[in-house]
């Protein structure tokens, strides 16, 4: 048989094969429909039980002892939905239920042995419902080979507000192809208050270099004024514009008037993201001396800066308002921005 003819037979073979596979999938789907139906009914039964048991705190040991592995999976699913829904007494009782029925233990096992996505799910569940022992397991997962699991474990620990060692956390999250992700922001903000000292130390430590933007951001949420010198120094002299901008944002959150020098410096920075944050910070802290410089920024070449400057001026009360009105009289792009801001803020 020639090459050409074999193409024909080959293609017939392939299409025949694919039709068979499709047929197989149809059969599987038909079966699945039945299974799904059962699953949905069982889930319904379980949720009815949960709703009643939680409310009256009256578990039915009979019912609970007859739960199997599939039921536990269903409970785990429902658990995350409930976690987003309720808190307080209900959640405490539900946690007890999960413990009693072995769902927590199953999750801890999954955390160690499951596939990647199962470990991630288990981490989430344990972050919401786990106990001390679970926290230990989560901490161990900071060394997981899958970066998503590490991140899930870190997030879970942050949500519980406990971690043995910030150093370990930073270490585990640095060595990864994690590019900057705001999830990391969330993680470190979660530790900002209780682990402020360590975060401040790590922000200057070489090991924290990949995560510096998040560490600096977290400091802004820590409420710690003793970090001001560090932030001011970063804002004024860090070679990386992202760090300078982050530091100014953090200073804005801390809201301490000592930030004045950093703000003044930032308002004349050569990089526009830094100028934007400086203008924001000036307004957030309420630095009157900055007003003339902010006024100048309304004529900045970069539109975002102009816009932010005008917004910031509008929060300086009388002084800012007067500045905007002065600017509005000119014949420049900045004047346009000023005019429109005045109009909007009316």
């Amino acid at each position: 048989m020639g090459l050409l003819e074999s193409l024909w037979w080959g293609s017939l073979l392939l299409s025949g094969l694919s039709i068979l596979i499709a047929g197989g999938l149809v059969a599987m789907r038909a079966v699945n429909v039945v299974i799904e139906g059962r699953r949905a009914r069982r889930r319904d039964e379980l949720t009815t039980y949960i709703v009643v048991a939680l409310d009256a705190d009256s578990p039915t040991p009979d019912f609970e002892s007859r739960l199997n592995g599939r039921d536990r999976d269903l409970l785990a699913e429902v658990a995350m939905e409930l976690f987003e829904m309720v808190k307080g007494g209900h959640l405490e009782r539900f946690t007890a239920l999960l413990k009693r029925t072995g769902v927590i233990d199953a999750a801890r096992r999954r955390l160690r042995q499951g596939k990647s996505f199962q470990r991630v799910r288990a981490a989430r569940l344990l972050g919401a419902y786990g106990d001390e022992a679970a926290a230990d397991d989560l901490f161990l997962r900071l060394r997981d080979r899958d970066v998503n699991v590490r991140l899930a474990a870190a997030t879970a620990l942050a949500d519980r507000g406990e971690v043995r060692s910030m150093w370990e956390l930073v270490h585990s999250l640095s060595y990864a192809a994690i590019r900057s992700t705001p999830r990391l922001r969330h993680v470190f903000r979660g530790f900002a208050v209780q682990h402020a000292d360590e975060i401040i130390a790590l922000a200057t430590d070489p090991i924290g270099r990949h995560l510096r933007p998040f560490l600096i951001d977290a400091i802004g949420h820590s409420g710690r004024f003793d970090a001001l010198p560090f932030l001011i120094d970063t804002a004024m002299s860090d070679p990386d514009k992202q760090m300078r901008a982050e530091a100014l944002a953090a200073l804005g959150r801390l809201g301490h008037p000592d930030a004045v020098d950093a703000v003044i410096g930032g308002l004349v920075d050569s990089e526009w993201p830094v100028r934007v944050q400086a203008a924001k910070c000036a307004a957030a802290v309420g630095i009157g001396e900055a007003v003339p410089l902010v006024e100048r920024l309304v004529e900045d070449p970069v539109w975002w800066v102009r816009h932010q400057a005008a917004e910031s001026l509008s929060s300086f009360g009388e002084v800012g308002h007067a500045a905007l009105e002065r600017l509005a009289l000119h014949n420049t792009p900045g004047a346009l921005v000023a005019q429109r801001t005045l109009f909007e803020k009316r």
Partner: peptide, 17 residues
């Protein structure tokens, strides 16, 4: 035949795929 393979029947494999 080869032409039919390439224009019709192989396509069936792709679409069902």
């Amino acid at each position: 035949l080869a032409f039919m393979a390439v224009s019709f029947s192989y396509g069936v494999f792709l679409s069902i795929g």
